[in-house]
Nucleic acid binder design. Structure first.
Lengths: 250, 250
DNA sequence: GGCGCGATTTGATCTAGATCAAGTTGGCTC
DNA sequence: GAGCCAACTTGATCTAGATCAAATCGCGCC
């Protein structure tokens, strides 16, 4: 069984890691995240229609997909890799509002300015659309619109979950919730169950959870001492997911 | 000029304050929040169509509109008053995820279970729809669907703003952001500019901002001492909104 | 007017997590 | 394989805000 190559290793579709270089011969029909994102609402015939609008791209780690308050002219669906969504305050403080994975759509809010910056954490494959073309296509496909709304509502639900994490949980609960949620999301894409790859830095996790790097690090080592998980070079292996889930739920 | 009666005082449309008692002769055409919520997407003719689906209700303070994980059968638009949206954890901790005001829609996520509890803070007027009827109407009106999506995307944007507040701001910044944001939202409905009525308790504010009652109280008295605002029996009067906005933006 | 009760304010103390300060580790380049 | 740099870990100390504990306010009710 071949796994989705989410984290790090070079992807077949992506021999050249330069932004703005289209890697093609990628048929939507063969797309790994075809049943994940908005595209899951499309018939095969529609898929070939949208294929003409989309430009498959491969972006290297650190590439910027969107910049807060700008770039309203494109939207993306992610097909491989992980993307960091963040807001930056005037004083330089950063809040990460989410991590996008394959199947996620960037640019849900079609009407107003971009709410956050989006940067590739590792090598990322995306399909890029011109916002205008995408919106026009959407107008002709009510069920696609419905699907987009569903995704947005789902994101909103997720955002409210995260408000709870930020508002009421302590460091242990935050880190546990982060690990369990990421695991659950990845599990929907693939059979990843105990190994949770963490492509982002501890700083990123801290900025997501409203904690400092040090606290994230200390909490994870504590979990490791308590045999709840093992820290591996590229993430963690959960030894006691049930216990962690309990901590996450408080 | 007559103000929207948002907070407390008995509303004309609402002589009897009992849940499940329809107060009618209320024509959508005459509705105060007609241009605010989803209804703003409707033509006059469509307005009379939707009028048949909606049941205008007047609910007393403390009435429950939705309960977390239940009640998927109705959705609401709010036309007067204020509603508290909250999540409660197993341990009894509460996170308020938002305060809904006239023009807001409850039940944006049409597909899955209710994400939060919704309770009237003061006397509230709503239009209630059967979810199924509403969804069917929606399916026949693509521009209404688009409007709903727009509202949802706007909520998501708002949710991300609030993550920043919860994640990176200190107590002063949180309280300032809360006051300024509420003021801005109310200003869109009415000409309320310096008087910000606070129908919710300090505890509610605390549960919204991830602070304790005591900290909210101390922060507000501090702001009062610094002549940034005056605390009134029913809210605050902002003396230096610009300074507060600066603090809110950090 | 006096009583009762929840909301609010104010004060004293405590603590989780921030901050400051070194190490340590691990890949990458030359 | 040495040197470098960013990410990570670990330890010592500090502090914003929590917690605990009393007032005080405000309002409906008898």
């Amino acid at each position: 069984m071949t796994k989705l190559d989410l984290f790090g290793a070079v992807h077949d579709l992506c021999p050249v890691a330069r932004p703005d270089v289209a890697e093609s011969e990628t048929r939507c029909e063969a797309c790994g995240s075809r049943m994940q994102g908005i595209c899951s609402a499309l018939e095969l015939t529609e898929l070939s229609e949208i294929e003409h609008l989309s430009k498959p791209l491969c972006l290297p780690a650190r590439a910027a997909l969107l910049r807060e308050g700008q770039d309203r002219d494109v939207v993306y669906t992610i097909t491989a890799g992980m993307v960091r969504l963040s807001r930056t305050l005037p004083e330089g403080q950063r809040q990460i509002v989410g991590f996008a994975i394959p199947g996620d759509f960037l640019g849900l809010d079609l009407s107003r300015e971009i709410a956050f910056s989006a940067e590739a954490i590792n090598q990322v494959n995306v399909c890029r659309f011109q916002r205008r073309e995408f919106t026009e296509f959407l107008a002709r496909k009510p069920h696609l619109m419905a699907r987009l709304h569903e995704l947005t509502a789902h994101e909103l639900h997720h955002a409210q979950d995260h408000m709870v994490v930020l508002g009421v949980k302590n460091a242990d609960g935050k880190v546990a919730a982060f690990l369990i949620n990421l695991r659950d999301r990845l599990a929907k894409l693939d059979r990843v169950v105990v190994n949770v790859p963490l492509a982002m830095t501890r700083q990123d996790i801290g900025d997501y959870l409203g904690l400092t790097v040090e606290t994230v690090s200390r909490t994870m080592t504590k979990f490791a001492r308590q045999k709840l998980l093992v820290i591996t070079p590229d993430g963690v292996r959960l030894l006691d997911p049930d216990k962690l889930r309990l901590m996450a739920e408080l």
